[in-house]
């Protein structure tokens, strides 16, 4: 199966980040790969989260009106990425919300974050599919090109 990349850049937090911050989807048969790039690990996690939102809807269509605090932890960076994405999936599922802005802080394997979004509006958001959870397929968190990449495949 041909593998293509779907590129998009959205929401860099600072001008320093702007050089690095972007997200893309990568193809995976029945499911979808989410990949974030950032100047820091935390920025790459934020971008991966935007890629997650984009599986369901266009992040630009989601207004960052309500703030939700999230936290998770894991024994290593890669499991932490999966936990982070799963924490968002959980909030999307239980609050029936979509998020378009994320701020992540990572220290000693612990992640704390804030996500901004709004309740799902089927007409305006045209949400295509709900994400069931993050898998460990294609899971990678590593320094790359003077920044960081954070990616995995999510089950839809």
């Amino acid at each position: 199966m041909p593998r293509s990349r779907i590129r998009c850049a959205i929401g860099p937090r600072t001008e320093t980040d702007a050089a690095h911050s972007r997200w893309e989807h990568f193809e995976h048969g029945a499911d979808v790969g989410v990949r974030g790039f950032g100047a820091t690990k935390a920025a790459a996690f934020e971008q991966a989260a935007l890629a997650l939102t984009a599986v369901t809807t266009d992040p630009a269509a989601v207004q960052p009106r309500e703030r939700v605090a999230l936290a998770c932890e894991a024994p290593d960076d890669e499991l932490l990425l999966a936990e982070w994405l799963n924490a968002i999936v959980y909030e999307m599922s239980t609050r029936k919300m979509l998020f378009s802005r994320y701020a992540v802080h990572i220290q000693d394997g612990r992640l704390s974050a804030e996500a901004w979004g709004e309740p799902v509006d089927p007409v305006r958001h045209q949400p295509a599919v709900e994400v069931k959870g993050a898998t460990y397929t294609g899971l990678r968190v590593a320094p790359q090109d003077a920044g960081w990449v954070a990616q995995t495949v999510v089950d839809v």
């Binding site: 499991l79 999966a82 999936v89 599922s93 239980t94 069931k132 959870g133 898998t135 460990y136 089950d155």
Partner: peptide, 29 residues
């Protein structure tokens, strides 16, 4: 959502416990 959450949670628990038990996996997935 219930099944999705169980799947996600146990994937992590199994990944951590497999490493602790010395089960050699070609891939963490």
């Amino acid at each position: 959502g219930l099944g999705h959450q169980i799947g996600s949670e146990f994937l992590k628990r199994m990944a951590v416990s497999a490493a602790q038990r010395g089960i050699a996996l070609p891939d963490r997935e």
